[in-house]
Amino acid sequence: MSDNSERKVELAELFIPKFHPAELVFAIALVVLSVFLFSQFEAQTRVIEGKELAGQPGFWSWISIVGMLLFGTPYLVTVILKARADNGRASVPQELLQWVVAVEYVLWFMAYVMLVPWLGYLLSTIAFSILLLFRVGYSKRNFFLWALIFDLVMIAIFKGFLRVNIPGGAIYEYLPPALRNFMISNF
């Protein structure tokens, strides 16, 4: 049983944001990005001689980046102050690790994306969801069965009914013509 039943929600807790010291890493990255973009202004936009700034093609990029610097610098300062005041209860490396862990699922997703043009939407989706379920630790047959049903219903709705634009797989070329057309249209 989780501890939800015992948790008392405070009103302030719902409206006042929480702070994690790992935000400092994020804030530094944002300011570095802003400075880099600002340094690239002349190289990445065309500057027309004799025209005022507001009429330059890159004016809107300039406004955006200056805004990023104007908000980003004091943001970094406030995060530094908050991090100093923090008692160090939360672990920064542990939080950063959680960000890195997500990259594994980016790779899973991109593998799925790369697989679809070869295996087709149906086979790729089933293979992807079954393997990923196994990876995240599910082993009971029911979980796989429900995932399979979910995949079939989802494909029937999006590809078969709503006709979303997903091409057939290269593997479909090996099917008999009638079945191939059916598979390209619906799966």
Binding site: Y112, V113, T125, S129, Y138, A147, F150
Partner: peptide
Amino acid sequence: RYLGVLTLTLCFI
């Protein structure tokens, strides 16, 4: 996590 797997397949579409 089960929901995460189903969500990721939906995101693809």
